[in-house]
């Protein structure tokens, strides 16, 4: 299978690889996927006092597209509020990385990882997710 240049770039120079202290009150950790399915993503986000994501780290076990999707996501979420980050859709990842149809599940997993990291952080902070944007409008 041929990979897009962007997938290769993220794969060869993955951004924000690492691990943060999962017990830190400002860190949210999302781990999605399963080894038996061939991909596991761990995404961590850290928010500042204003609730803006100031740092993100990932580690991923999976194919090149899964690694690239999670690397990209760490870049996308930085500087966003939790609500803004929660609004990221997997199709943005598909487009940015030019993923072929068989690799769309990698982008779905990355979207799930963001949601899981945000949920973890909100739970830690005793927050409940705000109502969906549609109903708030």
């Amino acid at each position: 299978m041929a990979y897009s240049d962007k997938v290769i770039d993220h794969y060869e120079n993955p951004r924000n690889v690492g691990k943060m202290d999962a017990d830190d009150q400002n860190v949210g950790t999302g781990m999605v996927g399963a080894p038996a399915c061939g991909d596991v993503m761990r995404l961590q986000i850290k928010v500042d006092d204003n609730g803006v994501i100031e740092d993100a780290k990932f580690k991923t076990y999976g194919c090149g597209s899964a690694i690239a999707s999670s690397s990209l996501v760490t870049e996308m979420v930085k500087g966003k509020t939790l609500d803004e980050a929660a609004a990221i859709k997997n199709m943005e990842i598909v487009e940015e990385l030019a993923l072929p149809p068989v690799k769309i599940h990698c982008s779905v997993l990355a979207e799930d990882a963001i949601a899981a990291a945000i949920a973890d952080l909100r739970e830690k902070r005793g927050e409940t997710a705000p109502a969906k944007a549609e109903s708030a409008a």
Binding site: P14, V17, K19, M31, P35, V40, M41, R42, K59, T60, Y61, I67
Partner: peptide
């Protein structure tokens, strides 16, 4: 493996 959460 440096990239792998499972390895961690």
């Amino acid at each position: 493996r440096d990239l792998s959460p499972l390895w961690d």
